[in-house]
Protein backbone atom coordinates (compact mmCIF):
# COMPACT_ATOMS: atom_id res chain seq x y z
CA UNK A 1 0.00 0.00 0.00
CA UNK A 2 1.10 3.51 -0.76
CA UNK A 3 2.44 5.56 2.12
CA UNK A 4 -0.07 7.92 3.60
CA UNK A 5 2.47 10.15 5.24
CA UNK A 6 2.36 13.63 3.80
CA UNK A 7 4.55 15.35 6.35
CA UNK A 8 7.36 15.52 3.86
CA UNK A 9 5.14 17.29 1.33
CA UNK A 10 6.52 20.81 1.95
CA UNK A 11 9.98 19.52 1.10
CA UNK A 12 8.78 17.94 -2.14
CA UNK A 13 6.91 21.07 -3.10
CA UNK A 14 10.02 23.11 -2.41
CA UNK A 15 11.90 20.78 -4.76
CA UNK A 16 9.17 21.29 -7.38
CA UNK A 17 9.52 25.04 -6.98
CA UNK A 18 13.26 24.80 -7.53
CA UNK A 19 12.72 22.64 -10.61
CA UNK A 20 10.28 25.18 -11.98
CA UNK A 21 12.78 27.98 -11.44
CA UNK A 22 15.36 25.93 -13.34
CA UNK A 23 12.64 25.31 -15.97
CA UNK A 24 12.50 29.03 -16.64
CA UNK A 25 15.85 28.77 -18.41
CA UNK A 26 14.89 25.88 -20.66
CA UNK A 27 14.66 26.49 -24.43
CA UNK A 28 11.29 28.00 -25.24
CA UNK A 29 9.69 24.92 -26.82
CA UNK A 30 10.64 22.76 -23.86
CA UNK A 31 9.49 25.37 -21.40
CA UNK A 32 6.19 25.56 -23.22
CA UNK A 33 5.90 21.79 -22.93
CA UNK A 34 6.55 22.10 -19.21
CA UNK A 35 4.01 24.88 -18.92
CA UNK A 36 1.20 22.92 -20.58
CA UNK A 37 2.25 19.83 -18.63
CA UNK A 38 1.82 21.78 -15.39
CA UNK A 39 -1.72 22.63 -16.39
CA UNK A 40 -2.46 19.01 -17.29
CA UNK A 41 -0.61 17.84 -14.20
CA UNK A 42 -3.07 19.68 -11.98
CA UNK A 43 -5.91 17.69 -13.55
CA UNK A 44 -3.96 14.46 -13.10
CA UNK A 45 -3.45 15.49 -9.48
CA UNK A 46 -7.22 15.81 -9.17
CA UNK A 47 -7.63 12.31 -10.55
CA UNK A 48 -4.95 10.97 -8.21
CA UNK A 49 -6.69 12.54 -5.19
CA UNK A 50 -9.92 10.76 -6.07
CA UNK A 51 -8.03 7.51 -6.51
CA UNK A 52 -6.95 7.77 -2.89
CA UNK A 53 -10.62 7.46 -2.01
CA UNK A 54 -10.99 4.54 -4.42
CA UNK A 55 -12.77 6.68 -7.00
CA UNK A 56 -11.51 6.39 -10.56
CA UNK A 57 -12.82 9.35 -12.51
CA UNK A 58 -12.91 8.70 -16.23
CA UNK A 59 -14.50 12.08 -16.88
CA UNK A 60 -12.15 14.53 -15.20
CA UNK A 61 -11.84 16.26 -18.59
CA UNK A 62 -15.26 17.74 -17.85
CA UNK A 63 -13.83 20.19 -15.31
CA UNK A 64 -10.75 20.74 -17.41
CA UNK A 65 -12.95 21.79 -20.35
CA UNK A 66 -15.22 23.88 -18.13
CA UNK A 67 -12.20 25.79 -16.86
CA UNK A 68 -10.86 26.22 -20.38
CA UNK A 69 -14.16 27.30 -21.86
CA UNK A 70 -14.86 29.65 -18.95
CA UNK A 71 -11.59 31.45 -19.69
CA UNK A 72 -12.21 31.28 -23.43
CA UNK A 73 -15.77 32.54 -23.42
CA UNK A 74 -15.06 35.38 -21.01
CA UNK A 75 -11.96 36.47 -22.92
CA UNK A 76 -13.10 35.95 -26.51
CA UNK A 77 -16.79 36.74 -26.22
CA UNK A 78 -17.25 38.96 -23.18
CA UNK A 79 -13.95 40.80 -23.68
CA UNK A 80 -12.70 40.28 -20.12
CA UNK A 81 -8.97 39.64 -20.41
CA UNK A 82 -7.70 40.07 -16.88
CA UNK A 83 -6.01 36.82 -15.98
CA UNK A 84 -7.01 36.90 -12.33
CA UNK A 85 -10.69 37.31 -13.11
CA UNK A 86 -10.43 34.64 -15.81
CA UNK A 87 -8.74 32.07 -13.61
CA UNK A 88 -11.02 32.76 -10.66
CA UNK A 89 -13.94 32.27 -13.04
CA UNK A 90 -12.43 29.01 -14.31
CA UNK A 91 -12.03 27.65 -10.79
CA UNK A 92 -15.46 28.93 -9.79
CA UNK A 93 -17.29 27.41 -12.74
CA UNK A 94 -15.66 24.02 -12.35
CA UNK A 95 -16.07 24.02 -8.59
CA UNK A 96 -19.78 24.78 -8.88
CA UNK A 97 -20.05 21.96 -11.42
CA UNK A 98 -18.09 19.75 -9.02
CA UNK A 99 -20.46 20.61 -6.14
CA UNK A 100 -23.57 19.89 -8.19
CA UNK A 101 -22.23 16.68 -9.68
CA UNK A 102 -20.57 15.72 -6.39
CA UNK A 103 -23.99 15.59 -4.73
CA UNK A 104 -24.92 12.88 -7.19
CA UNK A 105 -21.60 11.16 -7.82
CA UNK A 106 -20.50 10.89 -4.19
CA UNK A 107 -23.14 8.17 -3.77
CA UNK A 108 -21.39 5.89 -6.23
CA UNK A 109 -18.21 3.82 -6.07
CA UNK A 110 -16.01 1.76 -8.31
CA UNK A 111 -17.16 1.13 -11.87
CA UNK A 112 -20.43 3.01 -11.31
CA UNK A 113 -18.53 6.13 -10.38
CA UNK A 114 -16.16 5.73 -13.33
CA UNK A 115 -18.96 5.23 -15.84
CA UNK A 116 -21.19 7.99 -14.49
CA UNK A 117 -18.38 10.51 -14.50
CA UNK A 118 -17.46 9.42 -18.01
CA UNK A 119 -21.07 9.81 -19.14
CA UNK A 120 -21.38 13.32 -17.73
CA UNK A 121 -18.20 14.47 -19.41
CA UNK A 122 -19.33 13.03 -22.73
CA UNK A 123 -22.64 14.89 -22.41
CA UNK A 124 -20.66 18.13 -22.25
CA UNK A 125 -18.61 16.93 -25.22
CA UNK A 126 -21.78 16.31 -27.22
CA UNK A 127 -23.17 19.73 -26.31
CA UNK A 128 -19.95 21.51 -27.31
CA UNK A 129 -19.76 19.66 -30.62
CA UNK A 130 -23.29 20.75 -31.41
CA UNK A 131 -22.60 24.38 -30.46
CA UNK A 132 -21.73 25.97 -33.79
CA UNK A 133 -21.43 29.37 -32.08
CA UNK A 134 -18.53 27.98 -30.04
CA UNK A 135 -16.82 26.66 -33.15
CA UNK A 136 -18.03 23.08 -32.66
CA UNK A 137 -15.07 20.68 -32.88
CA UNK A 138 -12.77 23.42 -34.17
CA UNK A 139 -13.13 25.30 -30.90
CA UNK A 140 -12.12 28.92 -30.78
CA UNK A 141 -9.14 31.14 -30.05
CA UNK A 142 -8.46 33.18 -26.97
CA UNK A 143 -6.87 36.64 -27.12
CA UNK A 144 -3.77 37.41 -25.03
CA UNK A 145 -4.59 38.11 -21.40
CA UNK A 146 -3.74 41.13 -19.27
CA UNK A 147 -2.44 41.38 -15.71
CA UNK A 148 -4.35 43.91 -13.61
CA UNK A 149 -4.67 46.21 -16.58
CA UNK A 150 -1.18 45.56 -17.95
CA UNK A 151 -0.95 43.71 -21.26
CA UNK A 152 2.59 42.42 -21.63
CA UNK A 153 4.54 42.83 -24.80
CA UNK A 154 4.71 39.98 -27.28
CA UNK A 155 8.36 39.43 -26.39
CA UNK A 156 7.88 38.89 -22.65
CA UNK A 157 4.42 37.31 -22.83
CA UNK A 158 5.68 33.69 -22.75
CA UNK A 159 7.87 34.44 -19.71
CA UNK A 160 4.98 35.91 -17.78
CA UNK A 161 2.68 33.02 -18.74
CA UNK A 162 5.26 30.58 -17.51
CA UNK A 163 5.85 32.35 -14.23
CA UNK A 164 2.12 32.62 -13.59
CA UNK A 165 1.56 28.96 -14.36
CA UNK A 166 4.49 27.84 -12.24
CA UNK A 167 3.52 29.98 -9.24
CA UNK A 168 -0.11 28.86 -9.39
CA UNK A 169 0.94 25.22 -9.71
CA UNK A 170 3.10 25.45 -6.61
CA UNK A 171 0.31 27.20 -4.69
CA UNK A 172 -2.18 24.56 -5.85
CA UNK A 173 0.17 21.78 -4.72
CA UNK A 174 0.60 23.45 -1.32
CA UNK A 175 -3.15 23.82 -0.91
CA UNK A 176 -3.65 20.19 -1.90
CA UNK A 177 -0.99 19.02 0.55
CA UNK A 178 -2.73 21.05 3.25
CA UNK A 179 -6.00 19.35 2.34
CA UNK A 180 -4.38 15.93 2.45
CA UNK A 181 -3.18 16.47 6.01
CA UNK A 182 -6.63 17.63 7.10
CA UNK A 183 -9.23 15.23 8.41
CA UNK A 184 -11.19 15.13 5.18
CA UNK A 185 -8.06 14.39 3.21
CA UNK A 186 -6.72 11.71 5.55
CA UNK A 187 -10.05 9.90 5.59
CA UNK A 188 -9.93 9.40 1.81
CA UNK A 189 -7.98 6.19 2.15
CA UNK A 190 -10.38 4.94 4.78
CA UNK A 191 -13.18 5.33 2.25
CA UNK A 192 -11.25 3.15 -0.14
CA UNK A 193 -10.39 0.60 2.56
CA UNK A 194 -13.55 0.10 4.53
CA UNK A 195 -16.52 2.42 4.36
CA UNK A 196 -18.59 0.58 6.93
CA UNK A 197 -15.92 0.81 9.54
CA UNK A 198 -15.52 4.48 8.76
CA UNK A 199 -19.21 5.00 9.34
CA UNK A 200 -19.06 3.18 12.66
CA UNK A 201 -16.31 5.55 13.67
CA UNK A 202 -18.75 8.39 13.11
CA UNK A 203 -17.47 9.83 9.83
CA UNK A 204 -19.49 10.12 6.67
CA UNK A 205 -17.84 8.43 3.67
CA UNK A 206 -20.18 10.33 1.38
CA UNK A 207 -18.99 13.64 2.77
CA UNK A 208 -15.37 12.62 2.37
CA UNK A 209 -16.02 11.55 -1.22
CA UNK A 210 -17.96 14.75 -1.90
CA UNK A 211 -15.11 16.91 -0.65
CA UNK A 212 -12.49 15.10 -2.70
CA UNK A 213 -14.64 15.46 -5.83
CA UNK A 214 -14.99 19.18 -5.24
CA UNK A 215 -11.28 19.68 -4.53
CA UNK A 216 -10.41 17.74 -7.69
CA UNK A 217 -12.85 19.78 -9.76
CA UNK A 218 -11.33 23.04 -8.55
CA UNK A 219 -7.80 21.83 -9.38
CA UNK A 220 -8.93 20.67 -12.83
CA UNK A 221 -10.71 23.92 -13.54
CA UNK A 222 -7.52 25.80 -12.74
CA UNK A 223 -5.59 23.41 -14.99
CA UNK A 224 -8.06 23.95 -17.83
CA UNK A 225 -7.91 27.71 -17.43
CA UNK A 226 -4.10 27.71 -17.44
CA UNK A 227 -3.98 25.52 -20.52
CA UNK A 228 -6.46 27.71 -22.38
CA UNK A 229 -4.26 30.73 -21.62
CA UNK A 230 -1.09 28.97 -22.70
CA UNK A 231 -2.26 27.54 -26.00
CA UNK A 232 -4.72 30.34 -26.78
CA UNK A 233 -7.20 27.81 -28.09
CA UNK A 234 -9.87 25.55 -26.61
CA UNK A 235 -11.82 22.76 -28.26
CA UNK A 236 -14.22 20.04 -27.11
CA UNK A 237 -11.49 17.39 -27.11
CA UNK A 238 -10.65 18.68 -23.64
CA UNK A 239 -13.70 16.85 -22.31
CA UNK A 240 -13.46 13.80 -24.55
CA UNK A 241 -12.96 10.47 -22.76
CA UNK A 242 -9.56 10.04 -24.43
CA UNK A 243 -8.29 13.15 -22.64
CA UNK A 244 -9.76 11.98 -19.33
CA UNK A 245 -8.27 8.54 -19.86
CA UNK A 246 -4.89 10.19 -20.29
CA UNK A 247 -5.22 11.86 -16.89
CA UNK A 248 -6.13 8.55 -15.26
CA UNK A 249 -3.10 7.04 -16.87
CA UNK A 250 -0.77 9.75 -15.63
CA UNK A 251 -2.19 9.36 -12.14
CA UNK A 252 -1.42 5.63 -12.24
CA UNK A 253 1.95 6.10 -13.88
CA UNK A 254 3.11 8.78 -11.50
CA UNK A 255 1.93 7.23 -8.29
CA UNK A 256 -0.08 8.78 -5.51
CA UNK A 257 2.58 9.25 -2.89
CA UNK A 258 2.96 13.00 -3.35
CA UNK A 259 1.10 15.93 -4.80
CA UNK A 260 4.02 16.68 -7.06
CA UNK A 261 4.10 13.17 -8.55
CA UNK A 262 1.27 13.64 -11.09
CA UNK A 263 2.62 17.05 -12.08
CA UNK A 264 6.11 15.70 -12.79
CA UNK A 265 4.67 12.50 -14.26
CA UNK A 266 2.60 14.44 -16.75
CA UNK A 267 5.65 16.36 -17.89
CA UNK A 268 7.75 13.20 -18.30
CA UNK A 269 5.00 11.56 -20.34
CA UNK A 270 4.71 14.61 -22.60
CA UNK A 271 8.48 14.61 -22.99
CA UNK A 272 8.41 10.97 -24.10
CA UNK A 273 5.54 11.77 -26.45
CA UNK A 274 7.25 14.67 -28.15
CA UNK A 275 10.54 12.81 -28.63
CA UNK A 276 8.67 9.74 -29.87
CA UNK A 277 6.93 12.00 -32.41
CA UNK A 278 10.25 13.40 -33.48
CA UNK A 279 11.98 10.03 -33.75
CA UNK A 280 9.20 8.00 -35.31
CA UNK A 281 6.48 10.17 -36.81
CA UNK A 282 4.67 7.06 -38.03
CA UNK A 283 5.03 4.92 -34.92
CA UNK A 284 5.11 7.34 -32.00
CA UNK A 285 2.04 5.83 -30.36
CA UNK A 286 3.84 2.49 -30.23
CA UNK A 287 6.85 3.97 -28.42
CA UNK A 288 4.53 5.74 -26.02
CA UNK A 289 2.62 2.50 -25.44
CA UNK A 290 5.78 0.53 -24.80
CA UNK A 291 7.01 3.09 -22.29
CA UNK A 292 3.66 2.98 -20.51
CA UNK A 293 3.71 -0.82 -20.46
CA UNK A 294 7.23 -0.86 -19.12
CA UNK A 295 6.34 1.52 -16.30
CA UNK A 296 3.29 -0.55 -15.36
CA UNK A 297 5.23 -3.81 -15.38
CA UNK A 298 8.35 -2.58 -13.65
CA UNK A 299 6.87 0.01 -11.30
CA UNK A 300 3.32 -1.09 -10.49
CA UNK A 301 3.10 1.56 -7.78
CA UNK A 302 4.08 4.30 -10.20
CA UNK A 303 7.20 6.37 -10.70
CA UNK A 304 6.94 7.82 -7.23
CA UNK A 305 7.61 4.38 -5.76
CA UNK A 306 11.24 4.88 -6.80
CA UNK A 307 11.51 7.68 -4.27
CA UNK A 308 9.41 5.92 -1.64
CA UNK A 309 11.53 2.80 -1.91
CA UNK A 310 14.73 4.77 -1.49
CA UNK A 311 13.38 6.41 1.63
CA UNK A 312 12.42 3.09 3.21
CA UNK A 313 15.76 1.52 2.41
Amino acid sequence: MMKTDFRREPLYIAILAVLLIVGFFLPSWLRFLLQTALAGGLVALGVALQMRAGLVNFGQGLYYALGGYAVGMLAAQAGITDIFILLIAAVLVSTVAGIVLGLLLSRYREIFYAMLSLAVSMILYGLLVKAAWLGSTDGFNIPPVSYLGWTPDRAVRPDIYYVTTAVLTVIACLATARYLTSGAGMLCEAVAENEIRLEYLGASPRKVAFIVIVVASALSGLGGGLLAMSTGHVDPLMTNWTTSGGFVFVALLAGRGSTIAPVIGFFLLELVRTYALDLAPNAWQMILGLVMLAVILLLPEGLWSLIERRRKA
Partner: peptide, 19 residues
Amino acid sequence: YVDEAADPVQEYRNLVERD
Protein backbone atom coordinates in the same frame (compact mmCIF):
# COMPACT_ATOMS: atom_id res chain seq x y z
CA TYR B 1 7.06 15.21 -41.30
CA VAL B 2 5.19 15.39 -38.05
CA ASP B 3 1.90 13.85 -37.04
CA GLU B 4 -0.90 16.41 -37.05
CA ALA B 5 -2.89 14.13 -34.76
CA ALA B 6 -0.62 15.10 -31.84
CA ASP B 7 -1.02 18.35 -29.89
CA PRO B 8 -0.83 20.93 -32.73
CA VAL B 9 0.40 23.87 -30.67
CA GLN B 10 3.18 21.94 -28.96
CA GLU B 11 4.33 20.26 -32.16
CA TYR B 12 4.26 23.56 -34.03
CA ARG B 13 6.51 25.07 -31.37
CA ASN B 14 8.79 22.06 -31.55
CA LEU B 15 9.16 22.49 -35.29
CA VAL B 16 9.85 26.19 -35.01
CA GLU B 17 11.89 26.43 -31.82
CA ARG B 18 13.55 23.04 -31.54
CA ASP B 19 13.98 21.94 -35.16
